[in-house]
Amino acid sequence: MLTRQEVLKIAQLARLSLTDAEVAEYQKRLGRVIEYMKDLDSLSLPKGAFVRHVPLDAPRFREDEARQWPDREAIVANAPLAEENQFLLPTVLEKET
């Protein structure tokens, strides 16, 4: 079980609004999974093991050549709200993060 405060703190970091019922449920569910993961605690692990998942022969770079992407309208078209080809957010913008 996680505490209510713990769940609320994580939800805030992740920007997820939760109902009280959800908070209670995630106290249990998150707690259950995190508890299960304790099986890793028994392992003695080598220091600094690094897993490179990217194949060694993957390209490291692209060349610096500019190309105009042709379908930019299709991108702004998906905006919930747009104005003058810009994404629009409702007013009431408080301070920055």
Binding site: R62, D64, E65, A66, R67, Q68, W69, R72, I75, V76, E84, N85, Q86, F87
Partner: peptide, 28 residues
């Protein structure tokens, strides 16, 4: 640079809004 850091859109200052964009730099 001529193009952006992680995509090929032109790296220019002062263009019309959202004219130098692609799926990568708009986080599609």
């Amino acid at each position: 640079t001529s193009s952006k850091m992680f995509c090929s859109c032109p790296n220019v200052f002062g263009a019309e809004p959202n004219t130098k964009i692609c799926p990568v730099c708009t986080g599609q």
